[in-house]
Write a protein that binds this DNA or RNA. Structure first.
Lengths: 217, 217
DNA sequence: TGACATTAGTCACAGTGCGTGACTAATTCG
DNA sequence: CGAATTAGTCACGCACTGTGACTAATGTCA
């Protein structure tokens, strides 16, 4: 038997959080676990992952991507030998967890989960950070139009460190990923911010991808 | 059922080659395929991958690492719904393929293989290139001491493009990965080259990994 | 109303990185 | 000997990056 597990991530304030559900088995050593399902014969693993994510969340996440297969001997609630981990991103303002059986936990303050799933969470975080400057996945966590401060906050959340404003905008400009709209948002105190939309342009020259990696705060 | 497939890579002259075996089923549409085995209950997928690699090669490869799980509906010789792909690196001077049932094919000139395995090969090449500047996997393809020209050749092979000598050495120096021995190798014509060994030093400062990515030839 | 806090956005400098071509060095071959 | 071949270094110019300071536009509160 093979299980498909999903690491659902969403921003909560300034922290990145992961969705856990209460363990079905009340005698389980760890009382929380990642949402998972056994693979059905007629489904692909991608389908199963998407369905599992929808089931736990009550809505479709913005992105579902494979992380890796975990086939070591670490314990998994399904008892299966092999599990395939997927990572899913959910925009901010995530629906409230259904009942008391699912909850969001900050990634840097997790309760005990079964060891194989613990490895999956770590792998998912690594995968997000590695892919962040290859693919524009950060935009999946934002509404169609957004301020650059919002965008920077998402990057900081996913990378787990602060970025410098000027560097961030310079690199963003060089990557030709966004274009300004003519709308402005005044959000309480402070100067209003211009709204942008995601609009990737053909990159000229540069063999490199979009490297945000070096941005230190 | 779950299959474990291995993409064995080795340098052959100036080309990167992959090991294929003749299809067991003579009526199969594609006559060559990647080495694969069904997962046994008592083994981890890593164990199975290592064993499969040894079986096809007749020796242990220098590195075996997971690429990803492939669970789409593309055809696979095992008929399984899900396959986990591993990539394996074999140092140059690989043992001659056993009989006529296994052979090395240049990655840029492959015969037809089952479609899921074709995707695995592409994925393995992408994975090698992506990990090349994160982990020192190039050294696995070389003997304990080597010349910098040999090392550069490996990088060019794995990245699939030429690098500029001066840039390569500058970046290598900055990464503190090798140290010179006091031996020199005179290899036919031309000036003798100094031999180096792999000896990673603690990297000071620099939040970045070892970025060889930008080296253009 | 006016000082201040707060957030957005830009600029400019200095240091480092990187692509590139030209140069020197040591060997073999004829 | 001189040409060819491979190893190894240097230096220039441009681009990129980290950084702090600056201006701009709003709300808050005395």
């Amino acid at each position: 038997m093979l299980s498909v597990d999903v690491v659902l991530l969403t921003p909560h304030g300034r922290r990145l959080t992961v969705l856990l559900t209460r363990a079905a088995d009340p005698k389980a050593k760890e009382r929380w676990e990642l949402p998972w399902e056994p693979l059905r014969g007629e489904e692909t693993i991608e389908d199963t992952a998407a369905r599992t994510a929808r089931g736990a969340l009550g809505a479709a996440p913005a992105l579902v991507e494979q992380v890796a297969a975990f086939g070591d001997r670490r314990r998994h609630p399904s008892g299966s030998d092999v599990s395939v981990a997927f990572l899913a991103l959910v925009p901010a303002g995530a629906p409230a967890p259904v009942g008391g059986d699912t909850a969001w936990f900050p990634v840097d303050d997790l309760p005990a989960v079964p060891p194989r799933q613990r490895a999956m969470i770590d792998g998912a975080l690594q995968a997000v950070r590695a892919r962040l400057d290859q693919a524009p996945i950060a935009f999946r966590l934002l509404p169609p139009t957004f301020t650059l401060s919002q965008l920077q906050e998402i990057y900081e959340l996913l990378l787990g460190r602060r970025l410098h404003k000027a560097s961030f905008r310079r690199a963003l400009h060089a990557a030709w990923l966004v274009e300004p709209t003519d709308e402005w948002r005044s959000e309480g105190r402070g100067r209003p911010a211009q709204l942008f939309r995601y609009a990737p342009k053909k990159r000229r020259g540069s063999r490199r991808g979009v490297r945000f990696e070096g941005l230190a705060g």
